[in-house]
């Protein structure tokens, strides 16, 4: 197992106290070449997580603050007429970076949101007829306030599907909070961080994720999960095949983080809440249950074959 990956985790855990699970999930998402949506209240460390990951992994980092007057051009970039060369010259927007933090993505209008989401999907942007590839690795962490807050444009289901995972930060436990309150200012520490990995190394790891072995027995398990969501009356609609693929690739990445070259059911169970929470919706009577319970129930309802 890559020593540098361990270092990355260790360094991140020193700064983001008491959230090892979230750090691992975020890394899983990154290794599986997916994008991450973090949904929680302001001030629980969403931005810090993104920042720390970018710095530790040595990725170019850009932050886009989404507001209601944000335009697609603010994300993608614009061509500006240059008087001296008498030509239009393209000024790339903040999207041209290896790690993007799309802060409060549900504050912006759907038009601006879709500009980001299309770039995420295609790994390239087309401006004025010219297609420009985005750098690799390309990883978006979008944060979102829970949509019951005033003045937001909640992402529709189809766009939520673009995110491999949606996780929640949650409040830190008492001990972690103590450390947070008594410690040095986080921003100061981040500025002093040293990258623990080359971006080429990260790309190689992403390749290794694809090679993690999935046995027929495990596929049986994943299919049993998908089937259950489709047959059960608890969900408005079952998981799509794409959700199944997402579940598998996340499980692969999780297995790699766990220093294994095969996926076991525990890997699937570990990533399942993150992967399915934003893809499943409970029917009428179960609607008000929190998402965590829904995933927990799904895990417990499906026996490992």
């Amino acid at each position: 197992m890559s020593q540098s990956l361990n270092n990355v985790i260790k360094q991140a855990e020193q700064i983001i106290l008491g959230k090892p699970q979230q750090i691992r999930l975020a890394l899983t998402c990154l290794l599986a070449r997916g994008h991450l949506l973090i949904e929680d209240l302001p001030g629980v460390g969403k931005t810090t997580l993104a920042h720390v990951l970018a710095c530790t992994l040595g990725l170019q980092f850009q932050r886009i603050q989404f507001t209601s007057d944000l335009l697609p051009a603010d994300i993608l970039g614009v061509s500006v007429y240059q008087r001296d060369s008498e030509k239009f010259e393209f000024h790339p927007g903040p999207i041209f970076a290896q790690m993007i933090l799309a802060d409060e993505v549900n504050r912006a209008t759907p038009k601006a949101q879709s500009a980001l989401l299309e770039a995420m999907e295609e790994q390239q942007v087309t401006i004025e007829g010219l297609t420009r590839p985005l750098p690799a690795p390309f990883f978006v962490i979008a944060t979102q306030n829970p949509s019951y807050q005033v003045g937001t444009f909640p992402l529709p289901e189809s766009q939520l599907d673009r995110f491999l995972m949606r996780i929640q930060m949650g409040y830190p436990d008492a001990q972690a909070e103590r450390g947070l309150l008594s410690g040095v200012d986080r921003r100061e520490i981040i500025s002093r961080l040293t990258p623990q990995m080359e971006s080429s190394e990260l790309l190689a790891l992403q390749q290794r994720v694809k090679a993690v072995f999935v046995s027929p027995a495990l596929l049986d398990y994943v299919q049993a999960i998908l089937r259950h969501t489709r047959e059960s009356a608890r969900y408005t609609h079952g998981l799509s095949p794409r959700a199944g693929l997402a579940l598998l690739s996340a499980a692969r990445a999780w297995a790699l983080l766990d220093e294994r070259d095969t996926v076991i059911p525990e890997d699937v169970q570990a990533v399942l809440p993150g992967v399915v929470n934003h893809r499943l919706q409970a029917t009428g009577e179960h609607q008000h249950q929190s998402n965590g319970t829904l995933a927990r129930e799904l895990i417990e309802a499906v026996a490992i074959p």
Binding site: I264, P265, E266, Q269, I299, E300, A303, I304
Partner: peptide
Amino acid sequence: RAAHEGAQD
């Protein structure tokens, strides 16, 4: 063992 419990867990 619960039916859904993986070997490692």
